[in-house]
Design a protein around this nucleic acid. Structure first.
Lengths: 214, 214
DNA sequence: CCTGTTGTCTATAGGTTCATAGATGGAATA
DNA sequence: TATTCCATCTATGAACCTATAGACAACAGG
C-alpha cells in the first residue's frame, strides 16, 4: 500500500549498511506515515513498508505505537519552546519580538513539517500521561505570545482595545494552519512569515502614507 | 468506554418512543464521536454506546462507517458555500463583504461545531470519490474569499502590495482553527468574528486617530 | 384481527492490527 | 577463531472491528 522508499530498500534480505542506531530514520518514517494518514489511520505495517523492514522489527526501536507517537511529537516541538522564551525575554519593542516569534514559530516547517504536523493534529491521541505533559508545553507557548502582545498594548504600540486573548489565538491559528497547506517547493517560509507579520501588525486596509506612531 | 447518553438510554430492551426517522440523531452521535476521537480512532461501537443501541443496529441507518463520515461532512458544509457565494456577489465594498464572509464562515460553530470539526479534520479519510467531491467545495470557498480580497486591492480599499493568496490562507486558517478551541459557553461567536475582522482589516498597531482613507 | 413496516436485537464470520517470543546471522571484539 | 552484541527475521496469539444475516417486537392501517 505505502510507497517503499528506494533509499532504504536493500535488495536482498536483511542487514543494512546501518552503522548502528538508525533510530532517527525509524522515527522519521513514523512521522511521515502519521502525518499522511493520521495516528489511528496508519498501521505499524505502513511504517515498516516505508523502511523496507518487517512490521515486528519496529518493536526493537519503540515499545508501542503510542510510544512512537510520543517520540515524533517530542521531536516536533523540540527547541520550539526555548526559542520562543528567549525571544520574548529578549530586547526590542513588543511588535518586533512578536515578529520574531512568528518567524521562529514557522521556521521548523521548512525541515520538519511531518513532525510538526503530527504534533499539531495527533497529539490528542497520546495516552493520558504524555498528553498532559505535552499539552502543558502548548499552553506555555500560548502564554508567551499573549504576554508579548499584552506588553505591546501596555506600551501603546498596539491598540488599547485589542483583545489580547483572541489576537493570540488568531495568530497561532493562522500560523499552525500553515502546516496543512505549506509545500517546500513553493513560497519560502520566511516570506510567508513576513507576510503574516505585516498582516497582523498593519492589517489589509490601505492608508495615507502618514507618520505611523503618534 | 464512551459515556452512555442518559437521554437516549431507555431502560428496558428495545424500542424508543422514536416517532420515526431518528436518522438525524444517529448522524449527530457519529459527528460527536468522530469529532472527539477522529474517524479511525472511533469505532462504530463507540457511536452505538452514545445512542444506547447495539453496534449492528447502526447499519440500519448507514451502509458503512465511511458512509457515515460522508453524511457528517456533508452536514458540516451544508449551506456554507451558498451563503458565501451570495455574500461575495452581494452589494457593499469589498472590506464589508469580507467581514460578512468571516461572520458567516464562523457562524456554524455555534450550533454545529462537531460537524464542522469533522469536516475540517477528517474529510481526508473519505474514500476517493466523495473526497474529491468535497475537496472541490473547499477550494471553491477559498476562491470566493480570494476574489473578494482581490477586488478590495483593485478598488484600493486594501494595500496594493497585499499578497492576496497568503491573506486568504491566513484568514481561513485563523477562522478554521477557531473550531479547535471554541467553546459555546465562553465568548459568543459574533464577538470572535468581529474581533478577527478588525484584526485583519486594521491590524494590531495603534495609530494616530487620523482620517483613514486617502 | 391480520399484515406490513420499522427499528432493534443476537450471533457471528472474516479481516486487520498490535505486540511478544524466540531464532538467526553478520559485525565487532577479544 | 571463539564469543558477544546488534538488528533483523519468522511465526503467532489475542483483541478488536466492520459488516452481514436473520429473528422479533411494537405499532399502523385496513
Amino acid at each position: 500500500m505505502a510507497v517503499v522508499s528506494i533509499a532504504s530498500r536493500r535488495a536482498g534480505q536483511r542487514r543494512a549498511g546501518s552503522p548502528r542506531r538508525r533510530a532517527p530514520q525509524i522515527i522519521a518514517a513514523a512521522a511521515r506515515v502519521f502525518a499522511e494518514r493520521g495516528f489511528h489511520g496508519a498501521s505499524t505495517q505502513d511504517i515498516a513498508d516505508v523502511l523496507g523492514i518487517r512490521q515486528a522489527s519496529l518493536y526493537y526501536y519503540f515499545a508501542s505505537k503510542e510510544d512512537a507517537l510520543e517520540l515524533v511529537c517530542l521531536k516536533g516541538v523540540e527547541g520550539f519552546f526555548e526559542a520562543a522564551k528567549a525571544i520574548a525575554a529578549g530586547p526590542g519593542p513588543a511588535s518586533e519580538r512578536l515578529a520574531r516569534l512568528i518567524q521562529s514559530h514557522l521556521a521548523p516547517l521548512a525541515d520538519r513539517s511531518d513532525f510538526v504536523k503530527v504534533f499539531l493534529n495527533e497529539r490528542q491521541h497520546l495516552p493520558g500521561e504524555s498528553r498532559r505533559r505535552i499539552g502543558k508545553w502548548s499552553r506555555g507557548l500560548e502564554r508567551i505570545f499573549e504576554d508579548v502582545i499584552r506588553e505591546g498594548v501596555r506600551s501603546a504600540e498596539f491598540r488599547h482595545d485589542l483583545d489580547t486573548r483572541l489576537a493570540t489565538l488568531a495568530i497561532l491559528g493562522m500560523a499552525n494552519a500553515t502546516a496543512s497547506w505549506y509545500r517546500k517547493e513553493e513560497v519560502p517560509i520566511d516570506r510567508i512569515a513576513a507576510e503574516f507579520v505585516r498582516l497582523v501588525r498593519d492589517g489589509m486596509v490601505a492608508r495615507v502614507p502618514a507618520r505611523r506612531r503618534r
